[in-house]
Write a protein that binds this DNA or RNA. Structure first.
Lengths: 218, 218
DNA sequence: AATAATTTTTAGCTTTGCCTAAAATAAAAA
DNA sequence: TTTTTATTTTAGGCAAAGCTAAAAATTATT
């Protein structure tokens, strides 16, 4: 696998995030990258020449199998670094994203492999997102939104969406962490908010909080 | 402290390595960086505009106090990363340099501080080189070349120069590591080679090996 | 001191990656 | 089906960083 510029890798990442294997519009990509449409047009042309994407002018851009492989390898690095930063260095899960965005561009298969071992071959990162395997396989995406359960069920938080720093702050102040278990006490028929109970008491979670918190029955 | 490009940081690093606080010639810098003189002329002009260096055309380039501060902060990161790679991930000390050269450009004070703690506040890296402190202070440069001792003395290896991969290979095959202790058995009057003795036997070290291995009496 | 050799700088060109403004195309509305 | 609106592409610029080749300055040699 050749070596790519940081900018190229960022485009690949954005493409994977927005469309996965599906085509993505110039505009969406521009917004995600934070550049103007004209810059994006050029950039994807370059990526096309390296066979990382297929471009259909005025229609959209789509990752090639090669592009997908690269995207996953970047995602693997990103999530391994996040795991390292949280598990080993004690960063908060809300702080690690920008740092991982720098670290994910470090080029060294060996480093990735050793880091993976060092972290105990993790399957999921600190947000519960699956860490792609060496060969591109994806571990399962865990859980369903809290609102999807029924009252009375015991649940365990296994994943949270990256819904911005205010969301993470709120999790923090409510002391909600991956691995926590609760009982679903009630679900409001009025606004879909949910009452969670634990040994220390119970509290209500708004519908929009619930939509970004994923759990499994347990 | 503003943010700099990788190229800029590489120039600063090279400048510090070649001249420390002293001026450096365009040619030497070009050779170190691996670029043509004309490129260097331009580059240092840019650095001058950022007050990282003072340039006297046709005479030489010299780091400003700001430049020195930056150089040390990069060196700190480089050596901390090397320590991490060797101590935590199990890389060989001969392999870590190129990787640290990528990692040293990661921008985050917080990361550096946490890494420093995580590693147990090390004063020296895996080669025994001093790791600059947060505030720019330098721990002592340890040891003197093995040839500088006299026969009969007990020594401990505390530092090795980065004299290329063949040198490291040789250390490896001779099983010489930082922390090893030996007795100086003899010093050849003919070729300045040195006979070292340990519990497992004794062996001779060429003068050029000795020149790159530093020890303290102990 | 004058010439030769070396080093450094200037001038001009290339690529990446971004920008603005204008032209072209596609999608939506009348 | 035209016309209007929105999206995308082209054209032309700019900065960083590298290059080559030629000019200028410095250093070394006769």
């Amino acid at each position: 696998m050749k070596t790519h510029t940081e900018s190229e890798e960022n485009y690949i990442k954005a493409l994977y995030h927005l469309g996965g294997e599906q085509p993505v519009s110039n505009g969406d990509l521009a917004q995600r990258i934070g550049a103007k449409g004209s810059s994006v047009t050029q950039a994807v042309k370059r990526l096309g020449q390296k066979d990382l994407v297929n471009v259909v002018p005025y229609k959209g851009v789509q990752l090639t199998p090669q592009g997908i492989r690269l995207a996953k390898s970047i995602l693997r690095k990103h999530r391994l670094w996040e795991t390292f930063l949280v598990d080993k260095l004690g960063f908060g899960w809300d702080e690690v994203h920008p740092l991982a965005e720098q670290l994910e561009h470090i080029q060294s298969e060996e480093l990735v492999d050793r880091m993976f071992q060092f972290l105990g071959s993790p399957k999921h990162d600190p947000h519960g997102d699956p860490i792609p395997e060496r060969d591109g396989q994806m571990p399962p995406v865990l859980g369903q939104p809290i609102g999807a359960f029924t009252a009375g069920v015991e649940i365990r938080i296994v994943r949270v969406e990256d819904a911005g720093s205010e969301f993470f702050d709120q999790l923090d102040t409510m002391n909600i962490n991956l691995g926590n278990t609760y009982k679903i006490r009630a679900i409001s028929a009025f606004d879909s908010s949910v009452e969670l109970g634990s040994s220390t008491g119970s509290f209500w979670l708004s519908q929009s909080m619930c939509a970004n918190i994923y759990a499994i029955q347990s």
